[in-house]
């Protein structure tokens, strides 16, 4: 297991990238690791590109921003094109293949996850795509326990949507 993993999640405002980062970081802390989660968004509440970054480490995290990430989750086409330059050459690119049709050139390993379609079909709403992507990510990087992920989801999302978010996360793990 690597000592430090740097993950960026990017998409359109409203796709829940900040929430996904928050859950991921919280789960890492529940697993006894250090985590720092930052976010960047425009002045508009919806519709512009948003990103969320999570650094998970066994040691102290001094610099909280990511220069090159180990894993990049992109939820829409624009996010894919904008962020791929910041992915390490041997990194992992996780794309929501429902929205990203043109895969940008990269030497990183590519994982295609039809998260938005799956969310719509299985859970009736696109908004759970972020949890599906988180499920896929945690399966691939394999450094966060399922137990902590579930607890982090419970402690972050509103009570009535906990169950469906956990289901979506588990669904992502199985894709």
């Amino acid at each position: 297991m690597p000592n430090k993993v740097e993950i960026r999640i990017s998409g359109l405002g409203g796709q829940g990238v900040v929430l996904a980062g928050q859950i991921l970081g919280r789960a890492a802390v529940y697993d006894g690791k250090n985590a720092a989660q930052t976010q960047s968004y425009g002045a508009e509440a919806r519709g512009t590109t948003a990103k969320s970054e999570v650094i998970i480490s066994d040691g102290e995290i001094s610099f909280p921003a990511i220069r090159k990430c180990d894993a990049l989750i992109v939820m829409n086409q624009e996010a894919a094109e904008k962020n791929v330059k910041d992915l390490k050459e041997d990194g992992m690119l996780l794309i929501d293949s429902s929205n990203v049709k043109k895969i940008p050139k990269t030497s990183a390993k590519i994982f295609k996850i039809p998260a938005t379609e799956t969310a719509e079909i299985s859970f009736g709403q696109k908004v759970y795509a972020n949890m599906i992507m988180l499920g896929a990510l945690t399966k691939i990087i394999n450094i966060i326990s399922e137990e902590s992920m579930e607890k982090a989801i419970r402690d972050t999302v509103p009570g009535k949507s906990v169950a469906v978010n956990i289901q979506a996360y588990k669904r992502g793990k199985s894709l």
Binding site: N34, A35, A36, Q37, T38, Q39
Partner: peptide, 9 residues
Amino acid sequence: GTIAHMREQ
């Protein structure tokens, strides 16, 4: 803004 919006343990 960085520290205020960041999440950490």
